[in-house]
Amino acid sequence: MFDKFFHDFYFGIVEKEGYKLILEGLGNTLFISLCALIIGAVLGTVVAIVKISKSKNVFMVLLKLLCSLYTTIIRGTPILVQLLLAHFAIFPAIYKNAPIVLTAIIVFGINSGAYVSEVIRSGILAVDKGQTEAGRTLGLSSFKTMRLIVLPQAIKNILPALGNEFIALIKETSIVAYIGIRDLTRAAQQITGKTYEFFAPYITVSIVYLMIVIGLTQLLGLFERRLRKSDNR
């Protein structure tokens, strides 16, 4: 059985030059994930802070409403539908000939932001109210208190949940083949098209996905240990 697997693997990945497809796919998967991750993290933080703000300013109230609408709609509809809608309906109307990779990055970024915002919101709310009060009584503005005192502590609490979110994001990008992007999953599909054999290509990309996720987990673990330096436990 292993003989057959190695034979298929060699035939599909090396002889038929499947490795080129896999490398190209890996590049696209990583690029889309990384860009979406950054957009999601920034967007999520902003939305979380807006949602938590107690300001009664008309502008802020409207912004809060918009943010609620955003998380409700994004979390309430499937990512695949969002992707297809963006690619076939929204982008053609507002930005003709948009590069499909850009479409994917924006869709995944916006999608991830909705989930990240809830994770960050819970992290911020878990920081003791006394911390904010201490910052404010020292004369710091609410923004500076948030940035220098609350967020650094919140990040420590939410890092595991945020890691989960990032891992899910990387794997979710496997649907971009629907709009014609040659990512890792699409690479496997293309190899099967050449060899009419399914086991080796799909196992190969599975291992690649697994390596990415293990790498990310290690990186987050390292980061977490550094942040826990002050914990003494």
Binding site: D128, A134, S230
Partner: peptide, 20 residues
């Protein structure tokens, strides 16, 4: 914020910043 600089406060639960 400007006036709070001149009013120090000490809390029951200390509220030191644990990450610093």
């Amino acid at each position: 914020n400007l006036h709070r600089r001149k009013m120090g406060m000490v809390f029951q639960q200390f509220n030191l910043f644990p990450h610093l």
